[in-house]
Nucleic acid binder design. Structure first.
Lengths: 157, 157
DNA sequence: CGATGGGTCATACTTTAGTATGATTTTACG
DNA sequence: CGTAAAATCATACTAAAGTATGACCCATCG
């Protein structure tokens, strides 16, 4: 009970004690200097100094620090091209195979069937077959349409 | 000269003046209360109070405000289709005409040359000519490449 | 007024794309 | 192990795409 009271009012008790000590010092000073009437200025100066310091200490302890908030806006660009996540659900739903997706990506990069064939080390005819299957699955009839739709459906970046 | 000195040392002068006034008040209080020897405690209390306040005032004035930087992340969504701004500079630099840009956009939508012709009420041959000019200006040889490059250069959405 | 550039169109040709069909091989799975 | 899906390749054909060349119209500008 008492301990909790002490801990909860620690600050208040601290101030009180400090004040008591100060008053004691003052009384002692008064006794020492009261004899010499001319020491009055010194006495007052000591008091002034002590209480000024007390004031500063109080101010620092009691006033919450004056904060000056600086708000800096930092623009953040989301994914866009760095972090592309293909819509696996849609790919699976359309039944597009891994190889077909590869062909689709190279198509989107503007490569011809022959170039794609060379890139993937297969014949031109193979790419043509893949293309046709892709067009079927995407329900289009031209590569440009396929690319447009694939991008729209987020199958490729 | 004097005015500039005053303005530059305004704060210092303020503190000096305040101190002078306080000392005057102290002297005055001393003269008034020195007669009554028992008023000593009151006198000291007044001094204590004043200097405590002075201390507080000093502390508040002298402590520089603590700066706190808050970084607010502001997400910026690039174009996406809602707010697309074509790179007019690039378009002009490549010398691409208004009509050619139209054809380019329809190309990107996956339309065939014939479909583009019908859409723009011109013949297939006209679109072919436009296409060829576009490919020249973009330094490509196929429509898929043209579309890819045009999108990359932000000529079209 | 004549030169220029954009837009239009045509013919003729080459190249690439796309379709249809069939076949072989690889790979994954019950 | 056998089967289904995926991947491979070929041939033959049609349909687009792309190139080259020349021509015409029309607005604009020095």
């Amino acid at each position: 009970m008492i301990r909790r009271f002490l801990s909860k009012n620690k600050a208040v008790l601290g101030y009180g004690l400090s004040l008591a000590v100060l008053l004691f010092i003052l009384k002692w000073l008064e006794l020492r200097f009261v004899i010499y009437d001319h020491a009055m200025e010194l006495y007052v100066g000591a008091i002034a100094l002590m209480f000024t310091l007390l004031g500063i200490w109080l101010a620092r302890k009691l006033t919450r620090p004056q904060k000056e908030t600086i708000i800096v806006e930092k623009t953040v660009y989301p994914d866009s091209s760095l972090g592309f996540v293909p819509d696996e659900t849609e790919i699976a739903h359309l039944g597009i195979s891994k190889r077909e997706l590869e062909v689709l990506e190279l198509m989107a990069q503007g490569l011809s069937n022959e170039e794609i064939g060379n890139r993937l080390f297969v014949s031109l005819n193979t790419i043509k077959t893949h293309s046709s299957r892709i067009f079927e699955k995407l329900d289009v009839s031209r590569r440009t349409q396929a690319v447009e739709k694939a991008k729209r459906l987020r199958l490729i970046p």
